[in-house]
Write a protein that binds this DNA or RNA. Sequence first.
DNA 1: TAAACAAGTTTATTTTATAAACCAAATTAT
DNA 2: ATAATTTGGTTTATAAAATAAACTTGTTTA
Lengths: 94, 94
Amino acid sequence: MFKRLDPLLHSELRLAIVSILVNLNEADFVYIKKTTQATSGNLSVQIDKLAEAGYIAVEKVFEGKKPKTICRITEEGLNAFEEYVDAIKSYLQK
Amino acid sequence: MFKRLDPLLHSELRLAIVSILVNLNEADFVYIKKTTQATSGNLSVQIDKLAEAGYIAVEKVFEGKKPKTICRITEEGLNAFEEYVDAIKSYLQK
DNA sequence: TAAACAAGTTTATTTTATAAACCAAATTAT
DNA sequence: ATAATTTGGTTTATAAAATAAACTTGTTTA
């Protein structure tokens, strides 16, 4: 009846991050922060969790003198997202 | 871009409860428990939260000698559900 | 009549989400 | 030149949530 919801994706901010990355193939910290309206601290923590789970890959580079944190979705992350979308739909139908 | 997700509905079990009630117009504790596979304790707590928020109405009756907890969705709950469905869709599109 | 079961509730514990505080380097203002 | 502010974050602390474990009350069943 109801499919289980991956707890890593069933979180407003983490879902937003992954949603961005599924569509964009790469996005940096500043962009994600602006788009999600999250605080830096919260965003930092949630990016770490997604990275630790292998759902996203994080690359830290310098753009001129400024640090830049680039995030990309992984194959695993993409699969998890697709499963999540499928799962949550089982709750949304009337 | 991303709509906010009502925290009361953005919970696996509470969303399942509301999803059942949106479709069924009434369901009792035992039925909801069976359908969601939740533990009694968890279900009891989450039903209380939804009731306190005015999303569902709870009626306690006796069926013969057995207590029965009947739940129904309220107008407010239905609206909240519909908004939630709309909101989460903003995260699911590719 | 003792043990098991049904239908829940209450309490305790673990996890989460989130914000607040902090840090280092760079930029801007004085 | 140097003090103040901004940028791009990280770390730590706190509040809220989810969940399970323990308990309660009444009813069947052995």
